[in-house]
Amino acid sequence: MMKFTEEHEWLLPEGDTVTVGITAYAAEQLGDVVFVELPEPGTEVTKDEEIVVIESVKAASDIMAPIDGEIVEINEALVENPALVGEDPQGEAWFFKMKPADMSELDGFMDEAAYKDFID
């Protein structure tokens, strides 16, 4: 089940990895994305570390690691075509997959209904 953070990231656990992206709400706020910089696969990251840079037509913003873990895969298609973030933020425009140090950390995040309340 997809989980959501207060930093407007979504997390989708699949086996022992978690796919991470930004929510449709965040993508809408950012405006058209023109540049994405992703971390190197194999990087060990800690929660709240800034690991992704997004530049929209409006401004630069960072995406933080939602939990401790290791980056195992990144979405190269996003680097090639940053506009994907606006087109399919909660699907094709995933940013990276990570292997969490502790999968149970996900339990603390919001479900979709709670996130919807959070942004309203």
Partner: peptide, 9 residues
Amino acid sequence: VQYKAGVMK
């Protein structure tokens, strides 16, 4: 600052 279409469009 922008309308519904957004800055790029």
